[in-house]
């Protein structure tokens, strides 16, 4: 029953749904219908409501009161808004690319045929599985300046290690290290992507005498671009909203001296500690716009470097 006749290219409005393109569009809407239903029922309302609360004063208890742009004016004058945004941008700029590169390299390593690979893969994934309380305790221990293993290791080379999480200079790098270490999720996404690359391509390349590096650059990476694109976009969306890692490592404070006060801790604090839900919503709206613009830019640029079986429209 599938269309075996080529579509005519100028359908009328009524004819459209009968044409091949129309039927394709119909299939599209049907395929996304379950998600759309969930979105309309459970997601859209709360998102719109919470962003609208950004224009109100709302302390959760008393009814929200419309205050127009007041929250946004407050926000411009709020040093903690700038500090938390700055800290977050710093972490995004470092952790996203580092996490991607490290995960990619590990995925390459784990994409081999070696005895015991199941155990290796599981091992590399463990930091993403262990509950945050346990890994936070571990990192506090590893990074403890006097007897922690990290400074002990640096000491072997005669380097006096910093005070890591207690230092305003090194606290962000410490957190980035932990984030990269726990980016096993990205690693398995790459691994799945690598597995999707047909072996025939490598064989063809091998026959041509291409070196490992050339195969990597000319076969692997191009075919991995959709996956890389995914991890980039999600890395930005996710890292702008980094929260739990910092929360458990700093006992919810974003210290020392606000040096790890990330955006979402500030949002959380306003919402559930200071009960300034309107202000928290305004902060969220700004974050939403920042991430949206970056994502749109990514999607626009994707056509230039992301390999696809379908031409981007």
């Amino acid at each position: 029953m599938a269309a075996t006749t080529p579509a005519l290219s100028t359908p009328t409005a009524r004819g459209f749904w009968k044409s091949l393109r129309g039927r394709e569009a119909l299939s599209f809407y049907l395929f996304i219908a379950p998600w759309t239903l969930g979105f309309l029922a459970f997601i859209l309302g709360p998102i719109v409501a919470s962003l609208a609360l950004g224009f109100t004063r709302y302390d959760i208890i008393l009814p929200a009161k419309w205050v127009g742009l007041e929250n946004f004016r407050d926000l411009i004058a709020d040093p903690l808004f700038r500090i938390s945004l700055g800290n977050t941008v710093y972490i995004v700029l470092m952790a996203v690319p580092l996490g991607m590169v490290v995960s990619f390299l590990i995925a390459l390593l784990l994409n081999q045929k070696v005895r015991g690979m199941a155990a290796y893969r599981t091992g590399y994934f463990i930091p993403s599985i262990v509950p945050a309380v346990a890994s936070a305790a571990l990192w506090l221990y590893l990074l403890q300046p006097q007897w922690g293993l990290v400074n002990g290791f640096l000491d072997l080379f005669g380097i006096k290690g910093p005070t890591w999480l207690a230092s305003t200079t090194w606290s962000k790098p410490s957190i980035i290290m932990l984030m990269v270490w726990a980016s096993g999720g990205t690693m398995i996404i790459y691994l799945a992507g690598l597995q999707d690359i047909p072996d025939t391509l490598y064989e063809a390349a091998s026959i041509d005498g291409a070196s490992w590096l050339r195969r990597l650059v000319h076969v692997t990476i191009p075919l991995m671009t959709p996956t890389i694109f995914f991890t980039l976009v999600m890395g930005i969306i996710g890292t702008f909203q980094v929260f739990s890692v910092v929360f458990v490592l700093t006992d919810g404070m974003g210290g020392p001296l606000n040096s790890t006060l990330v955006y979402l801790i500030y949002v959380y604090r306003n919402a559930f500690v200071f009960f300034r839900m309107g202000y928290a919503s305004a902060l969220s709206l700004i974050l939403f716009l920042i991430i949206l613009v970056l994502t749109l830019a990514n999607v626009r640029l994707a056509g230039r470097w992301v390999y696809s079986e379908v031409e981007m429209e």
Binding site: A136, A137, L140, Y141, P145, Q146, T163, L165, A166, S167
Partner: peptide
């Protein structure tokens, strides 16, 4: 302060 703080962080917060 930083050293004392880091000493404490590696100990108390972690429950260690």
């Amino acid at each position: 302060f930083e050293s004392a703080n880091s000493f404490q962080q590696g100990v108390q917060s972690a429950g260690l």
